[in-house]
Design a protein around this nucleic acid. Structure first.
Length: 453
RNA sequence: GGUCCGGUGGCAGAAUGGUGAUGCAGCGGACUGCAAAUCCGCGUACGUGGGUUCGAUUCCCGCCCGGACCUCCA
């Protein structure tokens, strides 16, 4: 079996992946805070998780992939108030939209998708235990994690606590013992969501939920923890601190995987900058499968600059792959083993650009008439969530406001008659007419086919 | 200011201590009534200054440039 190598953020190096239990690989990913539609940058992180877990399922007999939904957060509270709806309405709707967007991009659902609000008890228990062990303290209704009680704080993100203090630009709350201390539990006003706890009615800090849910569903020690690189600090650093302190002797995640940011015009795509795009924006310009390919066009560990030209190019690339499949006719990929070079590319720290280059090699062979290569192409593409459609459906697309299939067929028949009669002026007029409406005709040896531009 | 990541041909984007992927775009040709698709052929790159080496795009150091994080963030 090909050895999977991953870039581990904590070791800052590519390392061979060795699961704790080869019979059961366990992965935790930070999911969305459900207050708005996911943007393309969010989707990049979800896609990295999708490719990683798809690959793990190829390599190991059992994989448990947990990805949480953060449904309690001050941004949610604020947005619900602004929308004049309840928090539950907002989070339910946004969660449904999130699921729909991921499904549209052929992402597989996680095995377990816990919600923060369903795990408050676990969080309260962990916080209480952290206080018992001297790693947390109560102050003015808050419970704070005492960074000084954990010597290896900063080891994950590569910072030392002195620097953090020196560089801190945030105002330090006066009740903190140490400027780096962070909130585990905070009091809620009556208008804010809250749960009863030993420290009064309140709500959890952001970081504790992932510690509680990963522990509940994966245990004290598990294999991989992933998320966007912007979560490395403070979120993941804090999760790690809480979990390791709460469960002495445990290791928490053995490998940390962080995807780099998606940029727009050289800047991070983010909601706070307002430069974000959602799937809805993309759909107006091209199929979502092209977006998926575009996001795989750079290795997950590198920043990727989103451009509309890039989306168009990804679509043309898929045209080429689908053309190769179309030429080969019906294919059966059942139980097809993956080509070694393709699998090796994915196992090399999810080197999707190299894997796509392998797809091109398969497509070239398939276009030359090698049907076996076409089967390889389809099997390989589908393992990374591509080439899910029939070629004809890909090329013909949605009619939208263009001519219907019946109208197109009628014009093709008329054009055929004109061509037979050598009336090329009429034939070309029909080609032009359809072309103006976004339908391209292609005369082949077995008749005329068409596709939408 | 601190930490981290990166700078490859017109564009996107890999690998690699020694004959420089892959795709898109461009150019020439074949095929086609015309096109499209396909096929054949062509060109152009390693931010910068040093060092190590028989030899560096690949390793090391300085500098310049870009991005991320240090605050909510995928």
């Amino acid at each position: 079996m090909t050895q999977l190598t991953l870039h581990d953020s904590q070791r800052r190096a590519n390392v061979p992946f060795q699961p704790l239990d080869p019979e059961h690989v366990r992965v935790y990913y930070c999911g969305p805070t459900v207050y708005d539609l996911p943007h393309l940058g969010n989707l990049r992180a979800m896609l990295t998780a999708d490719i990683l877990t798809r690959l793990l399922r190829r390599l190991y007999p059992r994989v448990t992939f947990v990805r949480n939904i953060t449904d309690v957060d001050d941004k949610i509270t604020a947005r619900a108030a602004a929308n004049n709806e309840t928090i539950a309405q907002l989070t339910e709707r946004t969660t449904a939209e999130f699921h729909a967007d991921l499904a549209a991009m052929n992402m597989l659902p996680p095995d377990i998708e816990p919600r923060a609000t369903h795990n408050i008890e676990e969080m309260v228990a962990m916080i209480a235990h952290l206080i018992e062990l001297g790693h947390a303290y109560e102050a003015e209704g808050h419970v704070l994690f005492a960074v000084a009680s954990f010597p290896s704080y900063g080891a994950l993100s590569g910072r030392d606590t002195d620097e953090l203090v020196a560089g801190a630009r945030v105002e330090v709350a006066p009740y903190k013992r140490d400027p780096g201390d962070f909130v585990l539990w905070k009091p809620s006003r009556p208008t804010q969501p809250g749960w009863n706890s030993p420290w009064g009615r309140g709500r959890p800090g952001w970081h504790i939920e992932c510690s509680a849910m990963s522990h509940r569903y994966l245990g004290e020690n598990f294999d991989i923890h992933g998320g966007g690189s912007d979560l490395l600090f403070p979120h993941h650093e804090n999760e790690r601190a809480q979990s390791l302190c709460c469960f002495p002797g445990s290791t928490f995640a053995n490998y940390w995987v962080h995807n780099a940011m998606l940029l727009v015009d050289g800047e991070k795509m983010s909601k706070s900058l307002g430069n974000f795009l959602t799937i809805r924006d993309v759909l107006a310009r091209g199929p979502v499968e092209a977006l998926r390919l575009l996001l795989m066009g750079a290795q997950y560990h590198s920043v990727l600059n989103f451009t509309w030209d890039g989306l168009d190019e990804a679509r043309r690339t898929l045209d080429r792959f689908y053309r190769a499949l179309e030429m080969a006719g019906p294919l059966d990929v059942e139980d097809r083993p993956l080509p070694a070079a393709f699998l090796a590319a994915l196992c090399d720290d999810l080197n999707t650009p190299l894997a796509i280059a392998e797809l091109h090699a398969m497509a070239t062979a398939a276009l030359a008439g090698n049907k076996d290569a076409a089967v390889d192409l389809l099997a390989s593409g589908r393992t990374i969530g591509l080439l899910m459609q029939e070629p004809e459906a890909w090329f013909r697309g949605e009619a939208g406001d263009g001519p219907s299939e019946a109208e197109i067929d009628a014009l093709i028949a008329e054009r055929l008659a004109a061509r037979t009669a050598k009336d090329f002026a009429r034939a070309d007029a029909i080609r032009k007419e359809l072309s103006d409406k976004g339908v391209m005709l292609e005369d082949g040896s077995s008749g005329t086919t068409w596709r939408r531009a």
